[in-house]
Simulated assay, not measured.
Amino acid sequence: MSDARQREEICRYGRSLFERGLTPGSSGNISLRLEDGGWLVTPTNASLGFLDPARISRLDSEGRLLSGDKPTKEIPLHTALYDTRGSARAIVHLHSTHAVALTMLPEIDPRAVLPPMTPYYLMRAGETALVPYYRPGDPAVADAIRGLAGKYSSVLLANHGPVVAGDSLEAAVFATEELEETAKLYLLLRNLNPRFLTPAQVADLVDTFGLELPSHHHHDDD
């Protein structure tokens, strides 16, 4: 895909996310890793709904700005996820309402923020880890992400929002949307004793679709 098309793709998905209320104001950021190891990334203080393709930040493989506006201050966050998720080609970070709300609940397990509620949550987002609160742009968040050792493609930052990696920008966007919708379902059903997927149903998804879930080790049943 050409540089121009990649820039247009970032703008198109950014506008879609913004227009549906998934990240308000100038919140959220998107990055796309390039073949040469560099990135395209949305600028700091830029609304995802009004991105200019020509002003998207172009970084080299060392994170140095080559062209475009000053990049998002969340570069350490993106860097850590790319460094530990070798398959990641794009990252989406939003401030989506229900995912942020989920991070504030006392019962949340930081190693599996959501239970297995739907097949598409597991198929697109996998399982989701919760990282403790750090101020936006704090380089220490990179250490917290690296501490997950690349096991998770979707992470929630406490009191902040989701960060999701994908093998394409489309995959990262779809996984982020699935995470937000599943967080919404959880909040709707909280304390109502809902039925989640059974361990056997989860195992069937893992076997059928080759899912890699941190809590589920593939094995052959007798």
Rank of each mutant, 00 (worst) to 15 (best):
G126T: 04
S67M: 04
S31V: 05
S2L: 12
A99M: 07
A129E: 06
E19Q: 15
V202C: 08
D36S: 05
N193V: 12
S16L: 15
H93V: 03
Y82Q: 04
S31N: 06
T79H: 10
S47F: 05
G14W: 05
A90R: 08
L94T: 15
Y186S: 04
M117A: 14
E178G: 09
Y82S: 02
H98I: 00
T128N: 12
T44L: 01
N159S: 13
S96I: 05
D83V: 01
S61F: 06
H218C: 01
A171Q: 12
I75D: 00
A46N: 02
R55Q: 14
L157D: 07
G166H: 02
I56F: 05
M117E: 03
R64D: 05
D60A: 09
G147D: 08
A183M: 09
V163Y: 05
L185N: 09
A144L: 08
N191D: 15
P110D: 01
L157Y: 07
L32I: 04
R89W: 01
R111S: 15
V131R: 02
D69P: 01
G37H: 09
R195W: 05
L156P: 03
T23D: 11
Y120F: 11
V202W: 08
V92K: 04
D143T: 07
H78S: 01
A129G: 05
Y82T: 09
S57V: 07
Y120P: 00
A46R: 03
P110N: 06
L59C: 10
I75N: 00
L94P: 03
A175L: 12
N193S: 14
L59R: 12
T72R: 01
R146L: 14
L66W: 08
A46L: 01
E180N: 07
S61E: 13
P132T: 02
K184Y: 04
P116E: 09
V206C: 10
P119R: 09
A140W: 00
P136W: 02
D221V: 14
T128H: 07
R33A: 09
N159W: 11
F174R: 15
L197V: 13
E9P: 06
S67Y: 04
P194H: 12
Q201P: 08
E9C: 09
I56D: 01
R5C: 08
G63H: 09
H98W: 07
L94W: 02
A171K: 11
L122A: 13
Q201F: 00
A200Q: 11
S87L: 01
T176G: 03
V92S: 01
I75P: 00
I145H: 05
S96N: 11
R64Q: 14
L185D: 03
V92Y: 06
A88C: 05
E127Q: 15
L156G: 07
G49E: 05
V131G: 04
A140C: 10
L102E: 00
L40A: 10
V202G: 10
H219C: 00
A203H: 10
D143F: 02
T72F: 00
P119L: 13
V131I: 15
M123T: 06
R111F: 15
S168F: 04
T42C: 04
G25A: 12
G63T: 09
L94I: 08
P24L: 12
V113P: 08
L197P: 08
S31F: 06
I10D: 11
R7W: 06
P116D: 10
R20F: 01
R124V: 02
E170P: 03
L130W: 11
P53T: 03
D83L: 09
A125L: 00
R33S: 11
D52L: 10
